[in-house]
Amino acid sequence: MTQHAITLDVDGERYELAVEARRLLSDVLRDLGRTGVHVGCEHGVCGACTVQVDGAPMRACLLFAVQLEGQAIRTVAALGDNGGLDGLQQAFHDVHGLQCGFCTPGLLMTLDALLRERAELDEATIREVVSGHLCRCTGYDNIVEAVQLALRRRAKAA
């Protein structure tokens, strides 16, 4: 199988790689040590593999790594605040917004992008966005609450 030479920009680092065209971005990112990119369905539904491409959330299981030369890919490894938790992560921690944690990185990538775009969100909108991710453990209440808490804290700090 032909290998393609590509350069990927992942979490601000450049990687020169040779990959087969069919290799999914989710698999390639995991090979690069980004094991926070979780694989849960490989058909776009569960959201566990969600990463940001040029700032927009996307399913890594529905992209081929060869497609993304020159685009900025961000995974959960880029979140956080100097090795500690950032505001959204801290809120997830404080209100018990995760249990097994398998869905969490994907959710964080979508919600991080959301919080970058919006300063205020009502509960219905948060639920709508969260509904693009499946979580089998939490029942979602605490995830929604975590987003609200992160927003409140951010508004207060501003």
């Binding site: 959201g47 927009a56 959330p57 399913r59 966005v129 509904s131 693009g132």
Partner: peptide, 9 residues
């Protein structure tokens, strides 16, 4: 249509 991370692509 679908969800945000699908609509972006």
């Amino acid at each position: 249509i679908a969800h945000w991370p699908i609509r972006t692509r």
